[in-house]
Nucleic acid binder design. Structure first.
Lengths: 210, 210, 210, 210
DNA sequence: CATGAATGAGAATTCATTCAT
DNA sequence: CATGAATGAATTCTCATTCAT
């Protein structure tokens, strides 16, 4: 990927985050990059393509970073989990623009390809969280894994909105711990009651996806 | 409010839900209603005004219905809470379009008035959930109320997305119970540890907002 | 002419004067009159028709008033002339709206009928001024009459613009005297030199007109 | 200023002159230029901007030309004045469209910036004529200068209307001489009587205006 | 590769006019 | 006569995309 392509993606994200996709014009992106509108079309096929590339670039970047931590040695699975969540929150703060854009444009239908990609991110995230729970709690957690991943995802998003939309400055390590502890409360209770809500069959198509 | 106004709001919501605000034209709304473009302007000042009216209409409707349940007699606070959450989920399913639109356009900047209104809905919701926790658990819950409301809101949203975006058909009563029980797990744990994350000062400006 | 018709004309003139013909909507005229838009169409065929009626109403009114003074007795022709000009200036101030509209919309093409009418007013005015010069100075003035009427008309319009557009408050009697004296200066000089510029043939078509 | 911009101004002026500002659409201007509507917006921000540019272009052009004559040598002030008036009348005939538009749209409210500019043209013109009288007649003329400029402006406008609106073909040199002689008649009379109508205080705000 | 002028398909909005009640 | 909802043509303006230089 050329420098120019990256530059476009980075400027586009800022503008999409600040004003929303539809209210940002190609001209503005080009201006922000400091070159002509036509140039942009040498690197991207269309405005939609810019959006898609933005999504792929950032989610790819964040996913890759998260994977790397997992490879860390000597830590217990729970310590790894904590570190990953903490790291993710920090990354979200660091790439506030991307997350803000993500919140703003979440599921705003642009075109099918973008929709599919957003869908796959959501799905990937639930699968990733499920795997973390498996790592930490082992096989016994299996029946509860979908509910746990779902709840944790919702909780994380909700706190993130304070950070991103309301510009709150939180201690992300403390927050990560707090959330993981709450999940632990739930895990304990679920294991003793055996209760769960989501069935694999419910999310079959959702999780299989890409 | 005239029949026509309501018709416009109902057609608009469907289209906003399906295609997003910016991708829906006034012409399409008018076509869906079966009358001319100009007619729409006899009832609404602008496209933004349609959007704002949609938001006010539905959120007003849902809020009003929820309040009515509270007035129910002879139920324990926890039963009331359950009934309200159950009812809300059902309403969300019934007004799937509105919620879908809400998810899609959440925080997409349209104009200041609309943004302010969306903000006030979010704020109202956290305050409402906080009050429910107070009703159910009494004064001792106070220090944990903001975290509880925040987490529960996130969890509800996440399950709702399955229902709305992925068209899952869930047993909403069972889901309500499941979620309230999970919150109960957390409440117990928090009370014994005394731990909490959010401080009132963190959300001061957010909650004060009308 | 019914009361309603006159009311419409009077309200229309105010709005045309303040905002111009094109920037005034039928709705605004109806609002100013205090009745519904449709009602207006029971009295006038179209917006253009309102404009035309406004022109006819006021110019008819002013012309009629001026003629009446002429019938006054015992005054020398020059005294009559002075009185008429003075009266006209006062009327213009009194019907400031009409004159302002006239200045604003002067020759703005709306439709052929209106254009023709504006043309006939202009023509009528030059003929009327010519006749006044004939009254005052007798036959010898004939060769200079068109130039005198033209110049005097221009001078009057120019001072009127200060009064109307710039809201100057002038002593209209003093101004009338001043202008008539200036014309007198010119008459004296023209008579002694015999010089003139306009020929009847120049304005033939213009003056014949209605 | 690019060729295209000038082309647009020239076509716009023709249409504004023929049909008036409000009755001329952007589409028509673009058609007259032979290119697409959108192209026009690459050169002008809005329709109002076209109008303002038309005014600035022509009045700037005419003012500049007039100033150049003043710089001529060896002529008496009165000869210079005559030449300037003659030249102006000729220019007006040459740019008949501009003058016609000017007459038509004179004081029709479009937007504040345009109104201010029209006002400043009017003011500039009275000041310019005042200065010519000062040049020709010297200090003694001072008390009469505002009345002279006002009257002469009115007279010029009135004859110009014959030329422009009624398409009369006049000998502009002869007309200029005739008018200047008439002003001379008035000057003589005013100087001997000492009479005048306008005071500086009357037009203070009008003349100060840029 | 870079440019930016040209395009033209929409978009929102206005408003004179009609007409059923 | 009075009403005002309905109409839809017309208008201004935007902007993604193309393409000749």
């Amino acid at each position: 990927m050329t420098d120019k392509k990256i530059m476009i993606i980075e400027q586009a994200i800022k503008l999409f985050a600040a004003k929303g996709y539809h209210s940002t014009s190609i001209q503005e992106i080009a201006d922000a990059c400091g070159f002509a509108k036509g140039t942009l079309y040498n690197y991207f096929e269309s405005k939609d393509d810019v959006m898609l590339s933005v999504l792929k670039h950032y989610s790819g970047m964040i996913m890759a970073m998260v994977e790397n931590i997992a490879k860390d040695q000597s830590l217990t699975p729970k310590e790894v989990f904590l570190k990953q969540i903490h790291f993710q929150l920090d990354e979200c703060v660091k790439h506030r623009d991307f997350i803000e854009m993500h919140i703003r444009e979440y599921a705003v239908p642009v075109n099918q390809e973008i929709n599919d990609f957003l869908y796959s991110i959501r799905s990937h995230r639930i699968r990733w969280l499920s795997n973390r729970f498996r790592d930490v709690y082992g096989e016994r957690i299996e029946p509860f894994v979908l509910d746990l991943a779902t709840m944790m995802n919702g909780i994380l998003r909700e706190y993130l909105e304070y950070i991103i939309l309301d510009k709150k400055q939180f201690d992300t390590l403390k927050l990560s711990k707090f959330i993981i502890d709450r999940m632990d409360n739930i895990v304990k209770a679920l294991m003793s009651s055996g209760e769960h809500f989501l069935e694999y069959s419910d999310l079959e198509d959702f999780l299989e996806n890409r």
